[in-house]
């Protein structure tokens, strides 16, 4: 056996790490390409798509409901407290709705789905990889992307924007409960403030974000699971799946936050 590079040399270590990161980025880019291509390959797995929509979408409803309600109620209280100082409580509907539609709705929905469904997807794919189930699919000449990954992609791209819409509606209702019902803001001004300030552009921004975040979450979570054997820091066996699952949630959450800033900066 020979050594490919001298690991005691810091420059060699840096180069080795750089090559590893490049290879990882390349793998992930190809993974995205094959997963999107899998959407157009036949036979289409409609039942699997429905199952995944149920898992990612319907299954995340409870966590989305409580997160949205508490976020909306807190926004209502905080907004009232700040606006009251300037005698501008009438703007509460506008502040709550814009914050939720453009920012908190897409971001918190994506983070919640990454934590609940993304981690499960990563672990499922990772276990299938280490137990050779994905190898078995390839040996049976079944494209693992079309069979396993693409339905998850499509389900996430359908479910997460819908969950974001629900988050926005529930959050705005939460703001109404705390601002109007508890703090006494005029209900007409809450609704009218919202109606007059929210434009199509604001809604488009929220929708674009939710689609991008959906793609990021499902891409990173399934991709990390798929490449569980190639990830250096993961180790081996069951431990590797637990480590890549944690890594997938952290990476997808950070990516969502970074892309949130980038999309806002470009489109606002």
């Amino acid at each position: 056996m020979e050594k490919l590079s001298d690991k005691s040399n810091p420059l060699a270590r840096l180069g080795d790490t750089g090559l590893y990161i490049l290879a990882d980025l390349g793998r992930m880019a190809l993974f995205l390409l094959y997963s999107l291509r899998g959407l157009f390959r036949r036979p289409f797995r409609f039942a699997e798509l429905l199952k995944q929509i149920h898992f990612i979408g319907a299954g995340s409803f409870v966590v989305i409901f409580f997160t949205a309600l508490s976020t909306g109620m807190v926004l209502g209280l905080q907004g009232y407290y700040s606006l009251h100082k300037f005698g501008a409580e009438g703007m509460l509907g506008s502040a709550v709705s814009l914050t939720l539609i453009m920012e908190l709705g897409p971001v918190l929905t994506a983070l919640m789905v990454a934590g609940r469904a993304g981690s499960a997807m990563c672990a499922e794919i990772g276990i299938m990889r280490i137990s050779e189930q994905i190898d078995a699919l390839e040996c049976m000449a079944i494209d693992p992307f079309r069979f396993l990954i693409s339905p998850k992609f499509l389900a996430a791209i359908i479910s997460i924007p819908l969950l974001t819409g629900l988050f926005d509606v529930i959050g705005i209702a939460g703001g109404y409960i705390s601002g109007v019902t508890l703090m006494g803001v005029n209900p007409g001004s809450y609704i009218e403030g919202m109606r007059s300030s929210v434009t199509n552009h604001d809604i488009q921004l929220g929708v674009i974000k939710s689609f991008v975040f959906a793609l990021l979450v499902v891409w990173i979570c399934t991709g990390r699971g798929y490449f569980v054997r190639e990830i250096r820091s993961a180790g081996f066996g069951a431990e590797s799946v637990s480590k890549v699952t944690t890594q997938a949630v952290v990476l997808s959450s950070i990516s969502v936050l970074i892309f949130d800033y980038l999309i806002t900066a470009i489109l606002l």
């Binding site: 276990i127 299938m128 137990s131 050779e132 189930q133 190898d135 078995a136 040996c139």
Partner: peptide, 12 residues
């Protein structure tokens, strides 16, 4: 090909 894997690789 047909392949029989070490752990059978059945879909759980």
């Amino acid at each position: 090909f047909g392949v029989l894997f070490q752990g059978a690789a059945l879909f759980d």
